[in-house]
Design a protein around this nucleic acid. Structure first.
Length: 219
DNA sequence: GACCAGGCACATC
DNA sequence: GATGTGCATGGT
């Protein structure tokens, strides 16, 4: 496939998903900070469970970088318990808040002023933040044009023949970022559409009958 | 009860 | 570089 036709195919897929699900208006969250917290809590976890954990943090008046940083591990892990992996995630939340406070005075908008690849490397240096979490924060909290890759992305686009399912994170990201115009709003909704498609129609035992991408399947 | 969910760090080969 | 394992809750 030529690069142009790859781009056309990717745009076609986006349009089909978008027509099916409508604009997703991602990421759920009232503030940039809440988006960051959600990005950490949703690691390998259903969003329905993350919502409960975030609600607990709100009700506990703990949804700020300094409050989280100063909370006890016991209190923090108890509040985020519904999202699973609560000990690990409590550590990661604190590490992120420490990072945010020490470098940007606790301000997400200040963090967002940092150049994209530099900020990505800094985020990746925080223990517990890997490529998907870093990119989710970059795109959805900091408004940077980075394409977020997840398990759904690899599954869907490998089934459609664009690459192998075991492709590396950075390889898949390079594929999308070189074939699609770098546009924050577009990347935002494209990833959201992928997640919606993956959740509903492209699980490991797929029920593809109603999938918006049905008919395009090549594998 | 098995399987999965908007991953990541670490050990081992 | 590839592969395996622990982390943990809640929905299907």
């Amino acid at each position: 496939m030529t690069e142009m036709s790859v781009e056309r195919e990717l745009l076609k897929m986006y349009k089909l998903m978008r027509a099916h699900f409508g604009y997703r208006n991602w990421w759920p969250g009232e503030t940039s900070f809440e988006v960051c917290i959600g990005a950490i809590l949703t690691q390998n976890t259903a969003w329905s469970n993350v919502k409960k954990a975030v609600e607990n943090l709100k009700n506990g008046k703990l949804l700020s970088s300094r409050k989280i940083f100063n909370s006890s591990n016991k209190q923090l892990s108890f509040l985020i318990k519904p999202s699973g992996y609560f000990n690990q995630k409590a550590r990661t939340l604190k590490a992120f808040c420490r990072f945010l406070i020490h470098n940007y005075n606790g301000s997400c908008s200040r963090m967002s002023k940092v150049e994209t690849s530099e900020l990505r490397n800094k985020l990746l240096s925080v223990k517990g933040i890997g490529p998907e979490t870093a990119d989710s924060i970059l795109l959805y909290a900091c408004n940077k044009p980075v394409f977020v890759i997840d398990a759904y992305t690899k599954r869907i686009f490998s089934r459609h023949g664009f690459f192998e399912e075991n492709i590396k994170y950075d390889g898949a990201q390079f594929f999308f970022e070189t074939n699609l115009k770098r546009d924050i709003g577009f990347y935002n909704d494209y990833h959201a559409q992928i997640v919606e498609t993956g959740k509903n129609y492209c699980r490991k035992k797929p029920g593809c009958e109603a999938c918006p991408l049905k008919g395009l399947l090549t594998k």
